[in-house]
Design a protein around this nucleic acid. Structure first.
Lengths: 118, 118
DNA sequence: TCCATAATTCCAGAATTATCGAATTAATAT
DNA sequence: ATATTAATTCGATAATTCTGGAATTATGGA
């Protein structure tokens, strides 16, 4: 992932409403949610939410598909993975010894159903 | 890590100069670099760089220590790890099957010296 | 003490981002 | 065709962030 793309993603998530929206969509994978329902859920005007959704879309974090009158939004988990990898890669910087503990911390979070994360 | 803290970190990294600075400091672990040298490295005025360094510090991504006339900055890798964990946790959201491939992708990046990362 | 170097703080202008009312576009039903 | 519902685009204002010149603080040497 290039620098510029990473910044788009980081900026998209660096806003509380958008961070919340993204998490909501992750939680609703793989079904997704319509724009209006998302807006109502956070008590935000539809047009404002539309703008936020556009930012997340430009960042590649979500995708949308029209379904009759509604537009269904879904989280793009692959993109999420790429960002995490991007950050971790920075952190490693060619020195695995720095990053091994990170992976050790992350692993339980992703292999068991219990929340063993920090 | 709480929401608000995560946003501080994401916003701090969502700016090209600061992202570059953070990476430079990661690369210079554990010695660190003085403020002036960082500014010169990116051809940025000292005061502007000082502001950027303050943002990164507020986000907890870097720390500083005065050393005679210089102020030495260092990356805080633990913080980095926390952010990565925060993002991954979102991505998992109680469903390990989603996140297992992420870990699979990350692991080679952090256990061998070669850059096997995506 | 006086000067030079290193860094930060203060301040102001430029640029970007956030928010939302109003108008518009899209799809469907009557 | 008209009306209704869903969503987006337009446009304008408020708020925040970025940038850098000038002044200030901190440290060490002559």
């Amino acid at each position: 992932m290039e620098n510029e793309q990473a910044i788009l993603v980081l900026a998209a998530l660096a806003q509380s409403t958008r961070l919340d929206v993204f998490r909501l969509l992750v939680a609703h994978e793989p079904k997704g949610l319509p724009s209006g329902e998302i807006a109502r859920h956070f008590v935000v005007p539809a047009n404002t939410m539309s703008t936020h959704l556009a930012v997340l879309t430009r960042a590649g974090l979500i995708r949308s598909e029209r379904q009759s009158r509604s537009v269904i939004y879904r989280a793009d988990l692959a993109r999420m993975r790429d960002v995490a990898a991007f950050l971790v890669k920075d952190c490693c910087g060619g020195r695995p010894e720095i990053c091994a503990p990170l992976i050790a911390d992350l692993t339980p979070c992703c292999t068991s159903t219990e929340e063993v994360c920090l």
